[in-house]
């Protein structure tokens, strides 16, 4: 990043981006802070779940038909479900499942996607062509349909859901990383690196990768919300996590028929999905605004 002295500012000049940047940065910081705080709460709750929930045994089995479909009360803040499990306990434990899915899918996607993308973008030529055609093939399928198909073909469970979402998600990172890496590859400092005779592997990992990470990280936080939604959708359709795992999408699906009589069974996990997805989005949007792309993501 260059510090632009104010006297260099000229109207109608791209250097004026500095001003919008300053304003954008503040808005970005607020959004980022709000998203980060909510997420931190969710993560802490997920980690401490066995100690902050009244009926931790309900997270897995814990069938108690006597207390089924109780309305929210002091004993059961979010009420109980058809088999008498505490909904509050299951929503908190559900955060563990959702975060597990999000982090697994993102790490796998980044590992595959960014590695391939950076290599393709830096190398260019036929390597880039091959990698990009492969990603195009994956992107040609509608994402949700491809995930659904995979879940149906394989045994539907949590691991399959993670795999199925990853398959549709990594190509986006490849595209993003390839674009950023190609633009970095054309920068003068990469010419200098090449002229020194630095090996391509070192050039990629010491120079291209660190400088490509900012847009990737922004994209990660923007995508996390979408992954939560996709995972919930798969479970909702019975193709993701299976009973008795506490998973928000699955819980909503189980509560949907009862919505008129026992709204709490579906409502609270639904709200949890909303809050988590929204928090990730604010975090990502905040980062993106603060790190205005016009600065070229260089710092």
């Amino acid at each position: 990043m260059t510090i632009i002295p104010p006297e260099e500012l000229v109207p109608n000049d791209e250097r004026f981006a500095f001003l919008t940047l300053a304003r954008g940065r503040l808005r970005g910081q607020k959004l980022f802070a709000a998203g980060a705080i909510v997420l931190l709460i969710i993560i802490v709750m997920a980690l401490l779940a066995p100690w902050i929930t009244p009926y931790p045994q309900d997270a897995q089995g814990g069938v108690d038909p006597v207390n089924s479909l109780l309305a929210p009360s002091a004993q059961h803040w979010f009420g109980t479900d058809q088999v008498g499990r505490d909904v509050y306990t299951r929503v908190v434990f559900g955060a563990r499942t959702s975060l597990l899915i999000v982090f697994s899918v993102l790490s796998l996607s980044v590992l595959i996607g960014v590695t391939l993308g950076v290599i393709a973008g830096y190398a260019g030529g036929w390597i880039r062509d091959v990698v990009m055609r492969v990603t195009d093939v994956f992107l040609a399928f509608p994402a949700l349909l491809l995930s659904l198909a995979l879940c149906i073909v394989l045994q539907p469970d949590l691991k399959t859901a993670i795999l199925a979402i990853t398959v549709t998600w990594w190509p986006w990172y490849t595209r993003l990383a390839a674009g950023v890496a190609a633009s970095i590859s054309g920068r003068a400092y990469m010419d200098a690196v090449r002229a020194l005779g630095i090996s391509p592997a070192r050039a990629v990992f010491r120079h291209v990768l660190p400088n490509s990470l900012t847009p990737v990280i922004v994209q990660l936080s923007l995508d996390a919300g979408g992954i939560i939604l996709t995972a919930a959708a798969l479970s909702f359709l019975g193709l993701g996590a299976q009973e008795p795992t506490a998973e928000w999408g699955l819980m909503v699906s189980q509560g949907q028929d009862l919505f008129t009589t026992a709204y709490w069974v579906a409502l609270f996990p639904g709200l949890a999905i909303l809050v988590a997805a929204f928090a990730f989005n604010m975090l990502g949007e905040g980062m993106r605004t603060a790190l205005d792309p016009r600065r070229g993501f260089t710092s």
Binding site: P5, P6, E7, E8, L9, V10, P11, F16, L19
Partner: peptide, 22 residues
């Protein structure tokens, strides 16, 4: 040279000083 304030002075003469946040 850069940092001399020459462009800021020109913008102010044009009445465009506030536009650049000054």
């Amino acid at each position: 040279e850069s940092g001399s304030g020459k462009t800021s002075a020109l913008l102010a003469i044009l009445g465009l000083g506030d536009f650049s946040g000054a």
